[in-house]
Design a binder for these strands. Structure first.
Lengths: 347, 347
DNA sequence: CTGAAAGCGCTTACAG
DNA sequence: CTGAAAGCGCTTACAG
């Protein structure tokens, strides 16, 4: 029913070989023959079958993308970045998630074996790095979008977590904030350490050692941000700033601080990490370290596309910079002895 | 390099036909032959090539999914729902977006023509309904995830926008809120009218005609929620509640109300629509009408899978219910004459 | 510049 | 119960 290359060939009075040639622009061919064929293609609205082309060429023009979950706050950005470049190259993006755990991986593994796609973009579902490494070792082109600073032994795109921590610290130091509370991310993630180390290092350079009691282990949830602040309050630890390792926990921290009657940003300035849409809607809007998630998705996809075009995959990670976005949750510290007594504002 | 059905056949000492039969469980075959073949398949780790199977069978076992954008707040939920059922059936999900406009549609159209997938799940990018309808008319199995209450002439999954509006109204009426401000969604969307009509109808039944000046046309943005409140304030319109047509604008409304020194939920109760994650993090947490986005994704995918299995696609939309989620942004109205004077709380 | 033929890796009548 | 052969719709040496 659907029209095929044979139909075009017949109608144009040439062989399928010739049609194939004009389709792919390969080999020399008479200009008028080519023109005639093109016209027939146009008339018939012929589009080659992806299945048949795939089988004949041994390539699918599809890239796979494996992600842990689709409901994370920044996942849409990464995906959009990847899809944009993949689509614009005429490739398709086949999506896989780890949502159903081991079963998902089974399905995924079998899709790999059936060669459903030519290359893979992946945000590592926890605990699957070895598996991904194997795929790469067996010859599947893979590029990791390294959201957790894993620095794997295969091509990847990452961001500057360490520098991000530094920029948060520099900003708070400039504002005169000398006792920051840090609400970290999940302990086992590389990004958590990088962000903390960068932050701590910058404070150290300014002659301030971080009070170890003011480093609270969070888990990237809104709730953990609240808990971090609550903990510091319970322990009667003095702090004039919060550096939370993501925006969600920064949002929780802001709320917990304000509920004690303290003002954000004046009494306590808060800096987050990620720059998800939520960061614009906290009260006050959140100063945060922007992670270039969309660009990371794009970069990873471009690497893969480049590879298909003949450029080898880079050995070292491509690192895209974070940038500090200053909003209203941070402000200069005013010495409390010289500051006017806080006005009571009813809300 | 990759092993094929011929390798298995050779090693098992049978024909490719026989291997194919054990693979697909078709036709009678000697139990021991089958067992031997299975063993060889196991040994070799053979998995049939998706491309070849696709070409031979004329089906890809891939479903396409077209969405306007991947960065909308609830898009991840829908996608996750769809992916979950598609994956569990051994199908793949090929993702397309409208992000680059006309060019995206070009690419997409050509993927349709090349028969890259067997069926389509779609959240309509604005202005493409006619195109989608054509695809359906030409025989492509399509199911629409109808987020805007378009009620198209082909299979779809929708939700109860009207009933959602009713439930918001009922809740506010029970709380004694008689003068609600409505901040609508985009005017040209069906869902906006449904939500408004359901809301208005319920108030009318309670003998309260909505003040037309208290219906403000928003556009689903946080900012439009603020504007709606600002407008009512500027016009000196009295209101004791807000019904916003999505959570983002509800969040903006909450902030605008609080900035005037009024209390949410006591002075003004606020109800949203959607129940995105943000709704849990507003201050106070938002009472809202939950839309079953994930279930809609699942239902749509199941419809399509069912169709592949022989069940015809339903003629009428499958409608999944919304549910009111009560949080802290709504509370009973206390008559101001009997209520204690507001305490000034510093925040 | 052009075409006949083989091949990509499967499935599916058709025969036996 | 099993296999040889044709076919799915292309691409790609190879020949001319």
């Amino acid at each position: 029913m659907s029209i095929t290359i044979a139909d075009v060939a017949a109608r144009a009075g040439v062989s399928k070989t010739t049609v194939s040639r004009v389709l792919n622009g390969k080999g020399e061919l008479d200009l008028r023959t080519a023109e005639r064929v093109r016209q027939v293609i146009e008339e018939l609205g012929y589009v080659p079958s992806a299945r048949a082309v795939g089988l004949a060429r041994g390539r699918t023009r599809i890239v796979g993308m494996l992600v842990p979950s689709l409901t994370w706050p920044w996942m849409g950005e990464v995906l959009q970045g990847a899809v944009d470049v993949v689509e614009s190259e005429g490739y398709g993006l086949l999506l896989f998630t780890f949502n159903r755990g081991a079963e998902s991986m089974q399905q995924f593994a079998s899709q790999v074996s059936s060669q459903s796609f030519d290359g893979l973009l992946v945000i590592e579902p926890e605990g699957t790095l070895t598996f991904i490494e194997q795929l790469h070792a067996r010859g599947l082109p893979v590029v990791l979008i390294d959201d957790r600073d894993k620095r794997p032994q295969f091509p990847s795109v990452a961001t500057t977590n360490y520098a991000g921590g530094e920029s948060a610290a520099r900003h708070l130091l400039e504002l005169g904030r000398r006792r920051p509370l840090v609400i970290t991310g999940v302990e086992r993630f590389g990004c958590t350490h990088e962000r903390l180390d960068g932050f701590r290092g910058t404070y150290a350079q300014a002659g301030i050692e971080l009070d170890q009691r003011l480093v609270f282990e969070g888990d990237f949830t809104h709730e953990s941000g609240r808990r971090g602040v609550q903990y510091a309050l319970d322990e009667r630890l003095d702090f004039d700033a919060v550096f939370a390792h993501n925006d969600l926990s920064a949002g929780g921290a802001i709320q917990a601080v304000r509920e004690t009657g303290r003002n954000v940003p004046n009494d306590v300035s808060v800096v987050g990490f990620d720059d998800i849409p939520y960061a614009e809607h906290t009260e006050p809007p959140l100063t945060t370290v922007h992670q270039p998630m969309r660009q990371m998705g794009q970069a990873a996809a471009r690497m893969l596309m480049g590879y298909f075009g003949g450029t080898p995959l880079p050995e070292t990670p491509q690192v895209l910079p974070t940038t500090l976005i200053v909003r209203s949750s941070t402000a200069p510290k005013v010495d409390s002895r010289t500051r006017p007594a806080p006005k009571h504002r009813s809300r």
